[in-house]
Design a protein around this nucleic acid. Structure first.
Length: 569
RNA sequence: UGGGGAGUAGCCAAGUGGUAAGGCAGCAGGUUUUGAUCCUGCGUACCGAGGGUUCGAAUCCUUCCUCCCCAACCA
């Protein structure tokens, strides 16, 4: 064949890949690529972190490198071991394995030593100003900062003071160590940033051995350099911290502390998703206020929430790949995320019959003794997934959505006098509609065509509609939870003047169906398993289920072109 | 009015001086025992705006506009 080996157009590189390739080509790091994922253990990871994880781990893997997992635990009052375990679990679940597992706190002594070195070089000083005074002296965008009265203190005195700070000689907040850079800088980060503060707090790893803790800007670059990270990838808001990142490392003028070349910080745009919030603060609020049932509520954009919802790591990775990497502030359409999980589950989820809102159907021309079994495929396009048997009996359930007493245009589901196929089983025609006292349709009396067993059309007559169904006496009961977006507004952070952000919450984000009826094979579905309920969507088994009453979470619905047609009518 | 970034179709995003990739969404058809999947086709993107350089500019220069981030002893 002439066209053999159709060359797949290689995806164009994003700017970080270009940087890495350039470094590889120049031999800057001797062919090494070492990235790091540096979460602060003060909350659960969300889909935004997933993008960063996929970037850091994916990049390293693509270029034969590795990635460290480093917990950025420099603020003991906010951090907790509870979070490190969940972070580890989530990264692994996403399918990534880190090379080293480190903690910024592992480097406290090193950082302390380097700080003493900076003091000795006259690059850092102990400042006695109060928190409010420091703020005042720092000035603002329009007013340059002014020097702290202690800015020119002699190195020996600074060293003595700093040692006493560490020894616990001073109360919390009474002094800080500051880098001596430029109080006039237009970049506020350079106006003598704090390096250490006194904080008598119990640290989840170092306990009470320290009463001074380093600040992010100082700790982060130093940690990167210690680990010999080559590319330190972070989000856009750290862009104007980069000069500081570089400054701290470059003060190692004698190269006594860090191996060269030094790591390079690179910033990319963080992920935002329509109809959801991503800030830790808001997420925490949702949990604390009981809007959701916890961090792993399937409506949460957290990794554990997505997992419980039924998302696969493959789908999340695919999403991260599709949204791309650039420097432009971006808001990804949540529809793309949904596309990714459908795409994945479409080929891997076994099909099952499940009736969400049961409506009884009696086959009037069938005796109870005539019940039979039909064999149906577990996947229409994948014979390797096998088949299973479904009991077909005189009494069935179909979904209420599949019957209309007055059929609209283009309706090819059930209606009085209409004929439909019950998937894999038979053709049935609705002969009678039974209502209760309130006019509610409670039962359909239908006739089946015995010649159509298996769902075949015996004479080629037109039967457009195919419905899912279950046998009433065999069906098992289940709880099914349907989810929608947590917010009704595309950008939930854009709260209208004078309104509470909670007014934007979607009151229908969770709908619990307690009366669903499933085919019997689902009786012993295990938590975590994913299925496609034919014609309705993809569902994952929740751990909340009890023996005899499984609970299913709808991961995402199937595309529904009928809904579109009807909406247009 | 300081510093740092960014502006290409509804949402992402390629493009790096030679005449605008791709994905999602949307629309129209086809196949189909899931109105699913799958397949096919469909977009005058005045490349934020104006000026300039050039045979030729989304790409270079220039002026302007808009949006985002920064004044925690948070990360």
């Amino acid at each position: 064949m002439a066209n053999e080996g159709t060359t797949q157009e290689p995806r164009s590189l994003h700017f970080i890949e270009e940087i890495v390739e350039a470094d590889l080509a120049s031999g800057k790091h001797g062919g090494r690529v070492l990235t790091r994922f540096p979460p602060e253990p003060n909350g659960y990871l969300h889909i935004g972190h997933a993008k960063s994880i996929c970037l850091n781990f994916g990049l390293a893997k693509a270029y034969g490198g590795a990635t460290n997992l480093r917990f950025d635990d420099t603020n003991p009052v906010k951090e907790d071991v509870e979070y490190v375990d969940s972070i580890r679990e989530d990264v692994q679940w996403l399918g990534f394995q880190w090379k080293g597992e480190y903690y910024a706190s592992d480097y406290f002594q090193f950082m302390y030593d380097y700080a003493e070195y900076l003091i000795q070089q006259g690059k850092a000083y102990v400042c006695d100003l109060s928190e409010a005074e420091i703020r005042e002296y720092r000035g603002n965008f329009h007013v340059p900062g002014k020097a702290s009265p202690t800015r020119d203190r002699a190195p020996e005195e600074n060293l003595d003071l700093f040692r006493r700070m560490r020894a616990g000689a001073f109360p919390d907040g009474s002094r800080v160590l500051r880098a001596k850079i430029d109080m006039q800088s237009g970049n506020m980060n350079l106006r003598d940033p704090l390096m250490y503060r006194i904080r008598r707090a119990h640290h989840h790893r170092t306990g009470d051995t320290w009463c001074i803790y380093p600040m992010y800007d100082y700790a982060h670059g130093v940690s990167d350099a210690i680990e010999t990270i080559t590319h330190s990838i972070c989000t856009l808001e750290f862009e104007d911290h980069r000069p500081l990142y570089e400054w701290f490392l470059e003060q190692d003028v004698d190269a006594k502390f860090f191996r060269r070349p030094l790591p390079r910080q690179i910033e990319f745009a963080r992920l935002n998703l329509t109809y959801t919030v991503m800030s830790k603060r808001r997420l925490l609020q949702l949990v604390q206020d009981g809007v959701v049932r916890g961090w792993d509520d399937p409506r949460m954009p957290t990794i554990c929430g997505l997992r419980r919802r039924g998302y696969t790591p493959e789908a999340v990775r695919s999403f991260a790949e599709k949204v791309g990497v650039a420097k432009r502030d971006m808001v990804a359409d949540v529809g793309l995320l949904e596309y990714c999980i459908r795409e994945d589950l479409e080929r891997r989820a076994p099909r099952r019959m499940a009736v969400l809102h049961p409506l009884k159907v009696v086959i009037t021309n069938m005796a109870e003794s005539e019940a039979f079994e039909v064999e149906v495929a577990n996947h229409p396009d994948d014979p390797a997934m096998g088949t299973r048997k479904l009991p077909f009996t005189r009494e069935l359930f179909i979904d209420q959505d599949d019957f209309r007493e007055e059929a609209p245009k283009k309706w090819f589901r059930l209606a009085p006098g209409a004929e439909v196929r019950l998937r894999g089983a038979a053709l049935v025609t609705c002969r009678e509609v039974v209502k209760d006292g309130t006019g509610q349709v409670v039962e359909l009396r239908c006739e089946w065509d015995p010649a159509s067993r298996g769902g075949n059309v015996p004479d080629g007559r037109k039967v457009k509609g195919t419905l899912h169904w279950v046998s009433a006496p065999h069906a098992i009961k289940a709880e099914v939870r349907l989810y929608e977006a947590l917010f009704t507004q595309e950008d939930p952070m854009d709260v209208p003047e004078g309104q509470d952000w909670k007014a934007l919450l979607n009151p229908r984000s969770l709908e619990i169906l307690a009366e669903a009826r499933l085919e019997p094979s689902l009786a012993d579905a295990k938590p975590g398993e994913r299925y496609q309920f034919e014609r309705t969507g993809y569902f994952a088994v929740d751990a909340d289920g009890q023996p005899g009453l499984p609970v299913f979470n709808r991961t995402v619905g199937l595309k529904d072109s009928w809904a579109k047609i009807e909406a247009k009518q």
